[in-house]
Design a protein around this nucleic acid. Structure first.
Lengths: 290, 290
DNA sequence: AATTAGGGTTAGAAAAACTGAATCTTATTC
DNA sequence: GAATAAGATTCAGTTTTTCTAACCCTAATT
C-alpha cells in the first residue's frame, strides 16, 4: 500500500491568466472583456490567487482597482511569459493547420465586406481554407489565435478602405427626402456599435443646428442595413459596406453631403507577411480587392 | 438587446501544459507523474488538443508515444514559454511571501533529518517561515514553486551528507545477531522507495552468497524506522537519517559492515543563493548542520 | 438626488477535469 | 509460444472548477 504523498499542484494557470489580464488592463471589467468571461469570474480568480498567496494583489477602490506594489513588480515578467505562451500557441496552430487562415473582423465587415468576396477568394486559392470570426473589438494580438485582423479604427495597419459615411435608404423612402431637414420627419436607424455616426454627419449637414435622430437601434449593422432595405428608415451608411446595395439599387443616397472619418478599414497581421505563405496570399488578395 | 457575438476562447492552458509535459517527457505516464494526475487525464487533454487542432501530436505505439513532426517542431518554444511562466510564478510567490522559504524533500529526509532540526532553525531565524513539502521524486525545478530541494541522488548540488547504509535494529533483537548469516532467521524490514538497499549491502556482506530478505515492507521510511524501534525486525539504516536513534540507543548496529552509496543527500536551489536572502540563510543554516 | 461606472457577493448551473477500473496492444522475457 | 509488463485508452461516475445572473455596494458625475 504505497501511500504516496499527493504531489501538490502548482499554480492555477487560469487564475494567473486572469490576474495578468486584470493587472495589465487595470480593471476586472476589461480583463473579463479580453478573456470573454464575466467580471465576476475574474474577481473570483483573483481572489483565489490572493488567498493562495496570502497577500493582496489589488487595492479595491470604488472606481476600479489599483495594483499593489507586489502586482506591479510581477506584472512585466508575467505578461512576457503569457505573451510567449500565446506566441507558442500560434506556432502550434500554424504548424498543425498550415493551410487555414484565421481571420477576425468586425461583424459588419465580416458580413458585408468580406463574406461577399469569400467565394471568389476560395476559388482563387482552393487549397487554403478561411476561418472567419466576428468580434466587436480587436482582440489582443499577442494572445489571440488569428492571422489577419480587419477592423475600423486608427490603429497601425494597412488601409484597405476609407470610411465615408452618408445617409442611405430604400428608393421609395428617398422620394420623400429633399433636404437634410426632411430627416426630422422619418425614422433614422442607428447602430449601437457606431452610435456616433448620426452626430458626426449631422455636424457637417446641420452646422450647429441640433439634430436628434429618432428611430430603431440595432446591435448588428447588417440587421440595420436589411431594415433600411426594407424601407424601415434612413441609415447612416458606411460606404465600403453598403456599396453593393447602392450598385444594385436596393439603397440610394438622398443627399450629397458625405463625411470622411479618421478611422479607416485596416488590415494587419501579428506576424510579418511573407507573400508566399497562405496568410500572405490571402492578405494580398484582400489588398487587391480594395 | 446587444447580441454580442461570443468571444471565442483561446487555447485551453491546461491541455497545453499536459501536451508540453507529455512531449518533453516522451510519455503520458511521465507527464501524469509530473503534473500529479492520472495518465487518463493527460490522454484526455492531449486528445482534446489534437481534436481542436485537427492534427495528431503523437503517434501511438505499443510501448509509448512518439512525437509527430508538428509536436517536435513546436515543443522547444512551448517548453520555453512554460518555463518562463514557471519563473514568473516563482517571482510572484517570492514577492508576495518574501519571508516564507519553500522546501521540498524526500519524505524520509523531511521527517527524519529536517523535521528534528526545524525547531532550532525557527529559533535561529524567527522571522522566516519554513514551508516543508514531502515528495518521492524531485519536481521539475523550472516549474515547481520551491526554493530549496533536499533529495538523495547523484544530481548536481551541494553535498549535505554521504549515504552510508548498514543494518540496524532494536537492542533486544541485536542480541540474537552475531554474524550476517543470522539475518536469515529474523524479519528484514524493507522500504519500497529504497528497494535495493538490502541487495546493495548483501553484496558486500555475503560476497556472492545469495541473500533474500524476508519481512514487512513499508512505503514510508519513517514507518519502517518506527517498526524497527519497536523490535519488528532489522532495517537497512541510512546513517544520516537514523543517527539520532543510534545516539539515543533506540537502535543499534549489530554488524560492522557498512556500505557507502554513490548517491548523497544533496541540497540545491533553482536560483543562485544570496546569503542575505531568507532562502540563503536557511541554506547556510542547513549546511552548518551537516 | 439621481445616475453611472466600476467591483464584490452569492447561489445555482454548466463545463471541465479527474479517478479507477477495465481493456487493448505489442515488446520483452521466460 | 505463453506470460509478463509497459503504456495508452476508454468509460462511467464524481469532484472540482468555472461561469453567469442577479443582486449589492461605493464613489464620482450630472
Amino acid at each position: 500500500m504505497p501511500i504516496a504523498p499527493p504531489r501538490p499542484k502548482s499554480f492555477p494557470l487560469n487564475a494567473l491568466r486572469a490576474f495578468e489580464a486584470a493587472a495589465r488592463l487595470k480593471g476586472f471589467a476589461a480583463a473579463a472583456e479580453e478573456l470573454g468571461v464575466s467580471p465576476g469570474a475574474i474577481s473570483a480568480h483573483v481572489k483565489s490567487l490572493e488567498e493562495e498567496l496570502g497577500a493582496p494583489l489589488f487595492d479595491r477602490a470604488a472606481r476600479g482597482v489599483i495594483l499593489t506594489a507586489v502586482a506591479r513588480r510581477v506584472l512585466p515578467e508575467l505578461t512576457q511569459a503569457f505573451d510567449a505562451l500565446g506566441h507558442a500557441t500560434q506556432t502550434l496552430r500554424d504548424e498543425a493547420m498550415p493551410h487555414v487562415v484565421h481571420v477576425v473582423a468586425l461583424p459588419s465587415v465580416a458580413q458585408l465586406w468580406l463574406s461577399p468576396r469569400l467565394p471568389e477568394l476560395r476559388a482563387a486559392a482552393p487549397d487554403t481554407e478561411i476561418s472567419l470570426t466576428a468580434m466587436e473589438t480587436p482582440p489582443n494580438h499577442k494572445r489571440a489565435p488569428y492571422d489577419l485582423y480587419l477592423f475600423y479604427g486608427d490603429m497601425p495597419g494597412e488601409i484597405v478602405a476609407d470610411d465615408t459615411i452618408y445617409p442611405v435608404c430604400a428608393p421609395a423612402l428617398a422620394e420623400r427626402l429633399n433636404t437634410p431637414e426632411d430627416l426630422r420627419k422619418v425614422p433614422c436607424i442607428s447602430d449601437t456599435t457606431w452610435a456616433d455616426d448620426w452626430r458626426l454627419w449631422a455636424e457637417a449637414a446641420f452646422k450647429g443646428t441640433e439634430f436628434a435622430p429618432r428611430g430603431p437601434a440595432f446591435s448588428l449593422y447588417s440587421l440595420a442595413v436589411q431594415e433600411a432595405v426594407n424601407g424601415a428608415g434612413v441609415l447612416m451608411g458606411h460606404e465600403a459596406l453598403i456599396a453593393p446595395y447602392l450598385r444594385r439599387g436596393e439603397l440610394t443616397a438622398p443627399f450629397d453631403i458625405r463625411v470622411q472619418l479618421n478611422s479607416k478599414l485596416k488590415l494587419w497581421s501579428p506576424k510579418p507577411l511573407r507573400s508566399n505563405s497562405p496568410v500572405g496570399k490571402v492578405a494580398n488578395w484582400l489588398r487587391e480587392m480594395a
